[in-house]
């Protein structure tokens, strides 16, 4: 139990990078970008192929992320220069990437089980002393994680990306990107090239998604052509769950919430899969239900609070009138 929850946290912090990318397109730019399902695999597949062909894992990962950036830029160009509807631009790029990805990969699955990946490098640098200290905090647990290296290093990487994103969104360019999602007419009247900002923004978003894909592939030991199916919904689920649970007052708060949402999503899925009658193929259904719940619940709670408040006010007024009448 504990050990599988640990696994959920571990992959949660890796998928959180993808969720931050989805946050950038969906929330910041208000651009429902479905490229994600394809660009996640682009990152995974290209990185996998490069690693299998002997490239250093860090270089391979960066190139994989860059390929995602390019894919996102193309979606942005389709939308801005080609004037294609946002949703459709993403869908077109997504299916185009399916073919492109298989070209890059050569086969549907690229295995990295016997290769040196970023994670095998991290583990070999890691001092097992830290593990025993951390594990000693869990006295009584029947099994303890074999290594904390991945969780801690990836946690640091993800938090670093979060801070970079926070910083970026407050720069002059970042402010203009946010305004493009908020009031395009206004920021154009303030001399911002909104087309360029959308292209860059969607590019960065998919760069993060592809980076996450590259890391997920190395973590799992393989890249698969179909590993991106439904990724956009998982990203959205993380964003929506995070916002619902942790709030969205400031940029720094939302990006943290998105990371939290990504981890919670993994935890919920892990727990759900331990329920006997649920099959792994039910995952997508569970995801859909989760998103629906995260969307509907806050509004329903809000409506109930409002109703309660009104009823209380009404009751107070009635009481007051009653006492006035009797006086």
């Amino acid at each position: 139990m504990l050990i599988s929850l640990f696994g959920a946290f571990e992959s949660g912090v890796i998928y959180a990078i993808m969720a931050l990318g989805v946050y950038l397109s969906f929330r910041v730019l208000d651009f429902p970008d479905l490229t994600v399902d394809g660009s996640f695999v682009t990152g995974a597949g290209i990185t996998g192929m490069l690693i299998v062909n002997g490239m250093s894992p860090i270089m391979a990962t960066l190139i994989g992320a860059f390929a995602g950036f390019i894919a996102g830029c193309i979606t942005g160009i389709l939308h801005t220069k080609g004037r294609i509807n946002a949703l459709l631009s993403g869908i077109l790029m997504m299916i185009a990437l399916y073919s492109i990805n298989i070209r890059f990969m050569g086969q549907p699955t690229v295995s990295m089980l016997n290769e040196t990946t970023l994670f095998s490098q991290i583990e070999s640098f890691w001092s097992s002393g830290i593990d025993s200290v951390l594990n000693s905090m869990f006295i009584g647990a029947e099994r303890v994680p074999t290594t904390w290296a991945i969780f801690i290093i990836m946690g640091i990487v993800t938090i670093a990306i979060k801070f970079l994103l926070d910083f970026f969104l407050k720069t002059e360019i970042g402010l203009a990107i946010r305004a493009t999602g908020d009031n395009q007419k206004m920021i154009r009247s303030l001399s911002a090239n909104t087309n360029f900002l959308i292209i860059i923004g969607i590019g960065l978003s998919n760069g993060l998604v592809a980076l996450s894909g590259a890391l997920v592939a190395q973590h799992g030991g393989f890249a698969n052509l179909n590993m991106g199916i439904g990724m956009i919904v998982i990203g959205l689920a993380s964003v929506i769950i995070g916002e619902a649970l942790f709030g969205k007052k400031t940029i720094a708060r939302v990006t943290l919430a998105v990371i939290g949402g990504a981890i919670i999503y993994r935890v919920v899925i892990t727990l759900a899969l331990r329920v006997d009658f649920l099959e792994p193929s039910d995952l997508k259904l569970i995801t859909a239900v989760l998103v629906i719940a995260a969307l509907v619940t806050p509004k329903a709670l809000q409506a109930r609070r409002e109703k309660k408040r009104r009823l209380a006010k009404r009751a107070a007024l009635m009481n007051q009138r009653g006492s006035e009448a009797s006086a």
């Binding site: 910083f167 720069t171 002059e172």
Partner: peptide, 10 residues
Amino acid sequence: ARDKKRRLVP
């Protein structure tokens, strides 16, 4: 920033 070039500074 309207009459300037937008940069990567806060």
